[in-house]
Measured scan of single mutants.
Amino acid sequence: NQASVVANQLIPINTALALVMMRSEVVTPVGIPAEDIPRLVSMQVNRAVPLGTTLMPDMVKGYA
């Protein structure tokens, strides 16, 4: 199964993503693939992302 990017902490709106904020986990539904974690670093989220939430492409500015 494909691992997705999951929030490792609460990520406030407009926060630039850092490695420590993300982990990979096999979840349903599938979100952003875990292999894209390096690409996500320094991109901003466009909403608050609670701990344990799967990151979806529409949550990250400039990802989709």
Rank of each mutant, 00 (worst) to 15 (best):
T54A: 05
E35C: 07
D36H: 14
A34Q: 06
M56Y: 09
G31H: 01
V27W: 03
D36I: 11
K61C: 05
R39E: 07
L40D: 01
P29T: 04
A64E: 13
P12H: 08
V45E: 02
P57N: 05
A18H: 08
S42R: 08
P29Q: 05
T54W: 02
G62S: 08
M21I: 02
I32S: 01
Q9V: 12
V30E: 12
T54C: 04
I37H: 02
E25V: 11
V45T: 13
T54S: 04
V5I: 09
L19I: 09
Q9T: 13
P38G: 10
L17C: 03
V26I: 14
V27R: 13
K61E: 13
G62I: 04
V20Y: 14
Y63V: 04
V27Y: 03
A7F: 02
G62E: 09
A64N: 14
V30D: 10
E35M: 14
A64M: 14
Y63H: 04
G62W: 07
A7P: 01
I13F: 14
T53Y: 12
L17G: 00
I13N: 15
V60R: 00
P12Q: 09
A64I: 15
M43F: 09
V20H: 13
A34N: 05
I37M: 15
A16C: 07
Y63R: 03
S4E: 00
Y63E: 03
G31T: 02
V20M: 13
P12R: 09
V60W: 02
G31I: 01
E25N: 12
D58N: 08
P12C: 05
P38K: 14
P50F: 09
L17H: 00
V27F: 03
T15E: 08
I32K: 02
V45P: 02
V6M: 04
V20P: 13
N46A: 11
T54V: 10
A48V: 10
T28Y: 13
R23W: 04
Q9F: 06
A64R: 04
N46V: 11
R47H: 10
M59H: 07
I11F: 00
M43E: 04
R39I: 10
I37V: 06
V41S: 03
P50L: 12
N14T: 04
V49N: 01
M21F: 06
V49K: 01
E35S: 15
V45L: 09
G52E: 04
V6C: 04
N8Y: 04
G31Q: 02
R47Y: 07
R23Q: 05
G31L: 02
I11E: 00
N14A: 08
P33T: 07
P12M: 07
I37N: 01
V26W: 10
M56Q: 13
M21K: 02
